[in-house]
Simulated scan of single mutants.
Amino acid sequence: MSIVGKTATMLRLILILAVSSLAFAAPHEELIEKRHPYIYKVITGPMNWYEARDRCEAMVGWQLAQPKSQFQMDEIMKLYVAGFYWLGITDLVNEGTFTYYSNEIPIDGIYTNWDVDSGEPNNENGIEDCTEIWKLNGLWNDVNCLLVRSHAFCEYHGGHNDPHMRTFDGHAYTFQGIGWYYLFKDCSDNTHFEVTTKFEPREDSTPDQIKTRTVAINVTVGNQYAILDGRDVTTGSTGGMVTDAKVITIQEEDKSIKLHFTSKDTTFTLNWTLRNHALDVSYSGSSYNRKLCGLMGNADGDPRNDFQKPDGSIVKDVLEFGESWKLTDKKSD
C-alpha cells in the first residue's frame, strides 16, 4: 500500500474512533444530568396559595416547592411555561420576614430570587404575603395569598424517615448503616460542633434485608453536649460545670423532640419524631455554607458532590460514602 493509501486509511480510522467516542459520550453526559435528586411537577389551577399548598400536600411526600439554591431554581424553570406559579415561601408568620412555609426558616442568607429591579418584594397595599414566579427568567414577586393564579410548582421531599436520607442540598439516598455516624459537623479549620447519630436495625428487618432507624443522637457544641437516647435526654459540659451561656436548646413534645443550637449566624434545627423515627434536619444562616460534612453533605448548594468523604474525595457509591463517616472508635452497643 502506498504512503498516500496508508495515510487515508489512518484518517478514516481516526474519524471512526472519534464518531464512536461521541456516540458513547453523549448519552453518558445526558444520564449524569438526569441523575439530580430534585423531583418537581406542575399542578394547574386556577387556585389561590392555600389551595395550591393543599393540592401539593394531598400527594404523599409532596409539598409546595421551596427552592434553596440557583441549581434548584434552574431545575424548576425547566418545567416553566408562561404564566404565574405559586411557591412555598411566605411572610405569613412574621411580616417582612419571608420563610420556607414547611419549617418557618428565613430564606435570607440561603437563597432569594426577587425581582429587585421592579422593587419586589414590596408588600403592596400591606396584603402581599405569598410568593409567585411571575417572569420567564424565574424572578419572584410577593402577592396576595388569596389571589387566584394559574399554576403551582410542587416538589417531592419524601421526609427523612429511616432509612432514607436527604442532604442539606437535597440529595435523597438510602443508607442502611449500623452503629454511630457523623450526621453533620463543622469542617472548617476551627471545628466548633458535631452531631452524631446511632442507627440500629428495625424490628421488621430480616437477615436478607436490613432496615435501620435512628435510636440516639449526640450533639456537641463547644464544651456543651446533649445526648438524646429515645426520650432520655442528658445535657452537660465536658468541663463539668456549664459556665458559658447555654447554646443547646431542647423542646420535648408528645410525639417528638426538637433540638436547636446556634453557631456564628447559623441556627441548626433537628426535629426527631420518635414513633416513626423521622429525623428532619435544617439550618438557617450562611456562615457554614461549604463548611459542613458528614451524612448530610457539604451544604454548598450543589447536590451532585454531596458524597464527599472525610479525605475530601467525591464518590458515587452510597455504601462507601456512608461508611466513611462511621465512628470507628465508638461502640454500637
Rank of each mutant, 00 (worst) to 15 (best):
T97E: 12
F98C: 07
T99C: 12
Y100R: 14
Y101I: 15
Y101N: 03
S102K: 05
S102D: 10
N103P: 00
G109S: 14
W114A: 01
V116L: 04
N122C: 13
E124R: 12
N125D: 09
N125R: 13
I127M: 15
I127G: 10
E128R: 14
D129A: 07
D129Y: 13
C130I: 05
E132N: 10
I133G: 02
W134V: 02
W134Y: 13
N137P: 04
G138C: 15
L139Y: 10
N141Q: 14
L146S: 06
L147T: 08
L147I: 04
H151R: 09
A152L: 11
A152D: 07
C154F: 09
C154P: 03
E155H: 05
Y156L: 05
H157K: 01
G159H: 00
T167L: 06
G170R: 05
A172V: 05
A172D: 09
A172L: 09
F175S: 03
G177S: 03
Y181L: 04
Y181M: 06
D186K: 01
D186A: 02
C187S: 11
S188V: 12
S188Q: 11
N190M: 11
N190S: 14
T191A: 14
T191H: 13
V195N: 03
K198M: 15
F199Y: 12
E203F: 11
